[in-house]
Amino acid sequence: MRLQYPSNIKVIQLPCSGRVDILHLLKAFEDGADGVYVAGCKEGDCHFLTGNFKARRKVNYVKQVLTALGIEPERIEMFNMSSAEGPRFAQVAREFTQKIQELGPSPVKTAKAA
């Protein structure tokens, strides 16, 4: 299965999506990421039972922080997929990249250039 997904996506591997921290997500935006998404296991399929639910709550928290800062909350999302769903991984990667391209560069980055 040689699936293609956009090369601008930087994959950061974690043992479980529950390991994602609010700070990891915010630091990505601080460093100029245009968008961030967490790819966790399907709901109900977490090996640690609730890791992916916790990740979703953290993503929602960061959405609130971004909104308060005046950044589109759509720049961060949580997706659920099984590790056997390669095609879905590639599809989500393409769709999210497309959405972020429509939103344009992060306001953090554009201000830096100004």
Binding site: L23, L26, E30, I71, V108, A111, K112, A114
Partner: peptide
């Protein structure tokens, strides 16, 4: 310490956005 990191990062993002 954790919340210090989160707040400081959010404030830095706000600063960066305004150059």
């Amino acid at each position: 310490e954790k919340e210090v990191g989160i707040l400081a990062t959010a404030l830095r993002i706000a600063r960066k956005m305004r150059g």
